[in-house]
Nucleic acid binder design. Structure first.
Lengths: 142, 142
DNA sequence: CGGCATCCGAGTAGATACTG
DNA sequence: CAGTATCTACTCGGATGCCG
């Protein structure tokens, strides 16, 4: 775990960023409303993340295509997440009233903008996931 | 939602990044093991995010100090998250056997490294949270 | 007093079957 | 095909109480 090199300068920079961000949300004024918590609860949900990533890779996907990609997700949860993600503006839903009906999902530009930031995180995570998982199982055996 | 400007070039770059990332995880070989899902489920949980951010701002925090900062979290959930986050290597727990006992939490360098990436995302989110929340309530009233 | 363990209710996930 | 309906199982979260 010691391969990361974080300087004191970086820590100071980080603290400044946080302070600026907190200036924007100000938890003292609206303790019950926290954008980070409320927005991220959906946007950084494990299923949402995979949906957004796959829609960033394949320009358009239909419901059952997505279901195959996002391994392990159920109809119900996929349907719910798609609705919520559409509601927050990350993706578009287009229905073609053919028989059988065709429904296509694709990221909005807003969703693409989010994905760019999100990928920074998931790239970091995939780089260190083996280490994290090893650490996790070691820790759980204490 | 149209204030984001995403070029086709950016979308191509994004797809390449994803492909590279997927090359690393390869869902066909291990469909049941997905680092993104498994690691992010903890790391991008709404409570975890706030805990990590506050520990990035205050170098050291005790249990009840954290509890006051992370508005709305219960003892149980805070205690669980701290244990899991320690297990994955994001933070350290130091106990001083005084009376009453004092327990201090602080980010590891690994945690700081994660926080740097995480902040990219939360800064984006706080910038657009008002828009997202407005969109959300409009959408839910249909 | 600070942190942790236990209990219990509510909400969420998953499996399956079914429909426009 | 793209979901919905239903049922069950379970996880999660909140309250409470305990212990060093």
């Amino acid at each position: 775990m010691e391969m990361e090199t974080i300087t004191e300068d970086q820590k100071v920079m980080t603290a400044k960023k946080i302070k600026k961000m907190f200036g924007h949300i100000n938890p003292k004024d609206h303790p019950e409303y926290c954008p980070i918590k409320d927005v991220m609860a959906l946007a950084s949900d494990k299923w949402s993340i995979l949906i957004i990533i796959y829609l960033g890779y394949y320009p358009v996907l239909r419901f059952n295509q997505l279901k195959k990609k996002v391994y392990g997700i159920s109809n119900k949860v996929l349907s719910e997440r798609l609705k919520l993600l559409e509601g927050d503006g990350y993706l578009n839903r287009k229905m073609y009233p053919e028989v059988p009906v065709r429904v296509e999902y694709q990221l909005t530009d807003f969703g693409h903008s989010y994905l760019e930031k999100l990928l920074e995180l998931t790239e970091w995570v995939t780089t260190y996931s083996d280490m994290i998982m090893a650490n996790r199982s070691r820790y759980s055996k204490q």
